[in-house]
């Protein structure tokens, strides 16, 4: 009885984690794709300097940051993967979402403030929640995207 119960709890958590995590991920990707299309006209580059023919009217620092957590299911997959090594596929989508969401937020901020482009874009990521400390906590990651927003003077 005790053994069965011990097995049932993680099993339920796995199932809940899988469905909740999949739903959250799918709706997030849907939103990312729609917004990426909407923002695709804003030039975004990691070049440090604007092209020579751009005439810059105003600059500002813009940033976008996202914190994403894995679900129980993904964590379990990663844990299993840890035995044998290899690509941790279950965390790939996590980081992919965080990166794209952060860049989007940065661009959205720039657009809202009336800027035309973002240059010198950098991405930083940091682990903000330990996954295995005393078997507690959730693997969570923050991705920060930041860059220099430019407002250009329109050529007459």
């Amino acid at each position: 009885m005790g053994g069965l119960f011990d097995l049932a709890v993680p099993l339920i958590l796995l199932i809940v984690g899988y469905f909740a995590g999949t739903m959250a991920e799918q709706s997030h990707y849907k939103s990312i794709r729609v917004r990426e299309l909407r923002m695709r006209r804003m030039p975004t580059t990691n070049l440090k300097k604007p092209p020579a023919h751009w005439r810059v009217e105003k600059v500002a620092l813009v940033a976008g940051s996202t914190v994403v957590s894995v679900d129980y299911f993904k964590r379990f997959l990663a844990q299993l993967r840890g035995f044998v090594g290899g690509r941790v596929r279950s965390y790939e989508s996590l980081l992919d979402r965080a990166r794209r969401e952060s860049v989007l937020r940065m661009k959205e901020e720039a657009a809202k403030l009336g800027f035309d482009a973002v240059i010198n874009v950098r991405l930083e990521s940091s682990n903000i929640a330990a996954p295995f400390r005393n078997d507690r906590g959730t693997a969570g990651v923050e991705v920060l995207a930041f860059g220099t927003a430019l407002k250009l003077i329109r050529q007459p």
Binding site: Y18, T22, F73, K74, F76, L77, L80, R81, V84, R87, R89, S90, E92, S93, L95, D96, R99
Partner: peptide
């Protein structure tokens, strides 16, 4: 969108 492996997570779970 090639930063995420296309393998279905449940398939990976089964293999693992």
């Amino acid at each position: 969108e090639n930063n995420v492996s296309p393998e279905h997570p449940l398939a990976e779970l089964g293999t693992l």
